[in-house]
């Protein structure tokens, strides 16, 4: 073999080696790597006609807590449960009350008299407007995870996601009864709660509405736990619910409309009492991707208060 041929061959190989090493070294940089070929395509869900959105974000309240629990709004005051405290402040952000709770609270509700009912993991407690504890219910069993509260006259409804049941308490904190929504009718399995998202509310007509997250439905129950009617629209489109356990949180507006907040594709929407989508409050672009569904509350004027767990703030949305 001729020497010059060998040399040319060798130099070619050296060049190939250099190209591969340098090329590879440069290739793994963020701006030179390709996107995810196996991306879960949610564009169809996320792209929504922006004209449907009739709310805009106007205010944020920064929360000074590590783990927010829940919010409620009543009488021009915002009630916040977070870490192991309960805080009340006015719309200007001035604190009115702050009390330490014995354990974290995940939800709370305010009565017309201004009493604050707080839901702990397995118990319910009532505090006066001045922050004094009036009573605390007997603890429920180990499985209990209370995720939501609602009030109707003298009854307190507590949604227990762990036991897949709604518990009833008197205004004095005495346990009365529970129901699991089960009936003898075929296929009616009661509440299907795959994860700790289980909300309920009482509308102005005194009807109890419970989310059945596994069925992606809003169900109307009598106080005895009999299913009266339900609203359901399983769809990834804007007018329906999809994924598991949605809507994650609800609040009922002064006119009986439902304010809903979803996880997965995080969004807040308002439904007519008849179950038709009336308007959209906030689209997923407002929230962190794969964020937690915000707890929602609404005041008499229809202003929406959303507790953003990921950004640690209460976000206010007002009609445009």
């Amino acid at each position: 073999m001729k020497k010059s041929v060998i040399y040319i061959f060798l130099s070619l190989i050296v060049i190939i080696i250099l190209i591969i090493v340098i090329g590879d070294f440069r290739s793994t940089r963020p701006d030179r790597m390709s996107g995810n070929p196996y991306k879960l395509n949610l564009d169809r869900i996320k792209s929504v006609d922006p004209n449907l959105v009739t709310y805009q974000e106007t205010k944020n309240y920064r929360i000074n807590a590590r783990q927010a629990g829940g919010i409620a709004v009543a009488g021009e005051k915002i009630y916040l449960a977070a870490d192991t405290f309960l805080q009340v402040f006015d719309y200007a952000g001035r604190q009115i009350l702050k009390i330490t709770l014995p354990e974290p609270a995940g939800c709370l509700e305010v009565s017309k008299q201004g009493d604050i009912i707080v839901g702990h993991r397995n118990a319910v407690a009532l505090y006066s407007a001045a922050g004094e504890m009036k009573w605390r219910s007997e603890p429920l069993d180990e499985r209990a995870v209370i995720t939501a509260l609602a009030l109707k006259d003298g009854t307190i409804f507590a949604a227990d996601a762990g036991n897949r049941a709604v518990h009833l308490y008197t205004a004095e904190g005495k346990y009365v009864d529970s129901f699991e929504g089960k009936t003898s009718i075929e296929g009616n399995h009661g509440f299907i709660v795959p994860s700790p998202y289980f909300d309920l509310g009482v509308n102005p007509d005194g009807e109890l509405w419970v989310v059945n997250p596994g069925k992606l439905a809003l169900e109307n129950y009598t106080d005895e736990g009999n299913l009266r009617s339900y609203l359901e629209n399983i769809s990834p489109e804007i007018d329906g619910f999809s994924g598991c356990c949605n809507p994650a949180h609800i609040a009922i507006m002064a006119d009986g409309s439902f304010l809903t907040s979803e996880k997965g594709v995080v969004r807040i929407k308002i439904y007519e009492p008849s179950g038709e989508l009336s308007t959209v409050v906030a689209l997923p672009d407002k929230f962190m991707e794969d964020g937690e569904a915000p707890d929602v509350a609404v005041d008499e004027e229809g202003i929406v208060y959303a507790l953003d767990y990921d950004r640690n703030m209460i976000r206010i949305f007002e009609p445009k």
Binding site: F9, L10, I13, V14, I17, I20, G23, D24
Partner: peptide, 13 residues
Amino acid sequence: YHMVVLGVAFLLL
């Protein structure tokens, strides 16, 4: 793939 090419290149060299 290119790392295999690198190895083969070294062996040829």
